[in-house]
Every structure is written in structure tokens, then in C-alpha cells.
Nucleic acid binder design. Structure first.
Ligand SMILES: [Mn+2]
Ligand SMILES: [Mn+2]
Ligand SMILES: [Zn+2]
Ligand SMILES: [Zn+2]
Lengths: 138, 138
DNA sequence: AATAAGAATGCGAACTCTTCTCATTTACGT
DNA sequence: ACGTAAATGAGAAGAGTTCGCATTCTTATT
């Protein structure tokens, strides 16, 4: 277990934090809800509380280790910070998530904020649609 | 009270529905939560239940009379349908909401969806920032 | 290695927003 | 005016998340 990342983030290297970070790093699914993380840890025999998962993910977010998204559906979705900003395109049928980054859109947003007199701090863009796989199934 | 809009939408012209529609049409605020609508009606002496406000707004959405948004903060926000699609820019200090439409962004989104193999159905774009007014206050 | 002090955890309660249930009321074609 | 189906209001319930607090861990210090 590598506690250096946590230490660097100013967080004590507790077992729940280590387990959650390790899970996020080794999972092949990039975007997960708190519940997803909680259930996965339970299934692998770890004894964590759901409240702790929420707390830890929020702390990770504050520390810049993870990013939180608000996909449609009500629950927060988290992913490991990758350094490079990106937006998401989601399949409304199967829930598949793809990522993209479009410099033109990014620029336009800045321009719009300026025109409207806003000091832009953030933005969120989600494209919804039916993915290739799901289009095949009639 | 003009019940024709409701009839046209295939909805019975009930008192709560008329009151809610009338309020949405006459309010100077365009974007409102169910709670906002509920409180406003109570204050003007109307006797509606919160559950009814939620139900009616959802029906209005299905009928295309209003559009629902998911601004940060957890609650749904509704606005009268204006015919023309637009996106939103919000002040993180005072909650001010401005609207915009950028043809270039719209086009780029379609292009991205196509590239990724998605049949695009919808999208949501929110820009967050500090509005002109709020920038003055240090 | 044992200790002490504060931080973190797990549990359930609580909270917010929204939907559901169901007895009662209302709309509207006849 | 009546009858029937649809809509309403009130409160319970549900989903997602946070809170409170007694207990357990971490980590710095002996
Ligand atoms: Mn992502
Ligand atoms: Mn709008
Ligand atoms: Zn799909
Ligand atoms: Zn402002």
C-alpha cells in the first residue's frame, strides 16, 4: 500500500482511505458513484462504512485527487484526477461513458463568459445519446 | 384564466394547473424550483400542495410547456419553454442566471457525438462564474 | 515499544429533494 | 345536475447524502 499520495495530499494514511484510493486506481471503470465504491469494497471483504466512503471521496475531491461529476440520475460520480480536463458523452440506454475535449468549445465558453461579464470559474458539459452498441439493438 | 394552453397540451384545466401556469407566465424570474413555485403560490393565498406542484411541473415538462434544468445545488429548476434552445451561465455568488446560445458549440457537439458513434439526443451545458455585480464586491 | 491526544471511523439518525399512496375533491361529457 | 374518471392534498416513503457521537486508529512523543 502506497501511503505517499495521501501524505502528499495532507491526509492521514488510514486504512479506508488507502483502500478507496487503491480501488479507484486499479478499477477498470473510471466513473463511479460512492455506492459503487462502497459495494466493491464490501465485496472484496473490506469493512468500510458508506458514510466514510462519502467523506473520503469528498476529501479526495478537495485535495484534487478525484473529480466529482453530476451526471443525470441524481447521484454524484467520481473519477481519479488525470491532470487533463475533459467533458463527457453518455449513453442513455446502457450508461456507457466516453470522454472528449474540444478546444473550440472551451474557447467559445470563455468568450461567452467574457461577453456576459462573468469571471468564469468552471463549466460542465454533458452530451447524451445512444451509443453505437445500443443503436444495433432495435 | 386561459385554459386553452392546457387543453391544447392534453391536460384538464384544473385550478392548480391554471395557477401554476399563470404564475410561470407572469413571474419576472424565469428559472424557478418547485419549492419556489409552491411558496409563491402559498403567499398569494393559493392552496396547493407541494406534491401537486411537482406533479404538475413534471406534466408540463412532458407536455413541452416547461423545460427542466439541473443546476448545481441538487434541485430541479424549471422555466417556460420559449421555442428556442439555449444554455445557461450562472453566478456562483448570487445565483444570477443568464442565457446564451452558441451555434459553434452546438455544431461541435453534434460533430463529437458523431465521431464517438453516438446518436445524440440531448446535451446540457452550464458555465459557472462570478457575475459583473458580484465582482465589484470584494 | 508503550502512551497520549487528536483525528478518523462506523453506525444509525437526520436531512433534502422528490415521488408515492390513498382518501377526498374536482372537472367535464352526458 | 350527475356520474365517473382524473386530479388533489397530506403525509408517508424513497433516494442520496450528511451529521453526531461513541469507539477505534494514526502518529508524534516518550
Ligand atoms: Mn471522465
Ligand atoms: Mn433558460
Ligand atoms: Zn449504450
Ligand atoms: Zn452574482
Amino acid at each position: 500500500m502506497d501511503s505517499s499520495e495521501l501524505k502528499r495530499a495532507g491526509l492521514k494514511a488510514t486504512l479506508p482511505r488507502l483502500k478507496i484510493l487503491e480501488f479507484l486506481e486499479n478499477s477498470d471503470v473510471r466513473h463511479m458513484s460512492a455506492e459503487d465504491v462502497y459495494k466493491a469494497l464490501l465485496e472484496s471483504g473490506e469493512d468500510v462504512g458508506l458514510a466514510t466512503v462519502y467523506r473520503v471521496l469528498t476529501q479526495f475531491e478537495a485535495a484534487g485527487l478525484v473529480v466529482r461529476h453530476h451526471f443525470e440520475g441524481g447521484q454524484s460520480v467520481f473519477e481519479l484526477e488525470q491532470g487533463k480536463h475533459h467533458d463527457h458523452i453518455l449513453c442513455v440506454k446502457c450508461g456507457k461513458v466516453d470522454e472528449f475535449m474540444d478546444e473550440t468549445i472551451e474557447e467559445r465558453q470563455k468568450k461567452i463568459a467574457k461577453e456576459k461579464g462573468y469571471a468564469m470559474t468552471d463549466h460542465s458539459l454533458y452530451i447524451y445519446g445512444v451509443c453505437g452498441e445500443c443503436q444495433k439493438e432495435e
